[in-house]
Amino acid sequence: MTGPVLSVRNLRVEFPTRHGTLRAVDDISFDIAAGEVLGVVGESGAGKSMTGTAVIGLLEPPGRIAGGEVRLKGQRIDNLAGEALRRIRGRRIGMVFQDPLTSLNPLYRVGEQIIETMRTHLPMSEAQARRRAIELLSEVGIQGASDRLDSYPHQFSGGMRQRVVLALALCAEPELIVADEPTTALDVSIQAQIIQLIKRLCRERGTAVMLITHDMGVIAETADRVAVMYAGRIAEIGQVADVVQRPSHPYTKGLMGSIPTLEGSETRLVQIPGSMPRLTAIPQGCAFNPRCPQAFARCFLEQPAAVFVGRSEVACWLASATPVQGTP
């Protein structure tokens, strides 16, 4: 298959309120190829979850996609209505959310939930679906899968529940998985297990993954490429090794410096003054200008467009020599 699995172009998400329209996601473009993991990283309020929610068509009104398009294997999905969208969600796009307890129905056995999802989307008999569900559960690392199929969600531990949710997301063989903070609620030792699992399963199946997280460590371990978001825009997007080791955008640099590491011996962490602006008060020009140590006149007037720095695309006036359009 050539061409990206997911292609997002100039996506805009807006919330009309009494005090004017708030723009949660502002002109975002990216692609994800088959088998690729794109990390979307940012702090609270950066718009990363909003981007994920817009891609799977789960925006809560009054939030709406105000511009741009989302294509899944070339087919436009951002303008689909309820029923058509429901056929894609769960079938062609799988989802994993932060809290595994709220993504599972507490009143149904986990097996029933997986079997129901499979039979909704795929032509399968009950017995076939049951066999497949057992296979899936053992594949995600649940021991004694044939017995555990008849357990209720509360009988699983947090890590095991997230494995079940992953099985549920994968059960209809989707082309894309949107995982929103899949390991945030878990302990470090369990987090490492789940990260490995997501990575392995998606590589084996050639599933594209959009991994949304605030944790740069998780991104460095899992993702192939990473998009760093700030105030609803992409500040920097590129190969993980480039962005993590040679960040170009002042925000990414500050972000990387502010993370305490096991290797470093520095006594003080780099600190970015201030905090993420609220949606009601996004500064004019580059949204990062009040916190940027290198801001100059142009940054306060015009919003920078993405330009190539090496293999990464960076939205910063410091980096721009010749602005380019879109992705190659």
Partner: peptide
């Protein structure tokens, strides 16, 4: 210590942890 994600991508050797608390 092995479970902490490797941010510097130094290729540090890590052993996977089995089981749960």
């Amino acid at each position: 210590l092995d479970a902490v994600p490797d941010l510097k991508m130094s290729g540090r050797q890590r052993r996977m942890i089995e089981g749960e608390i």
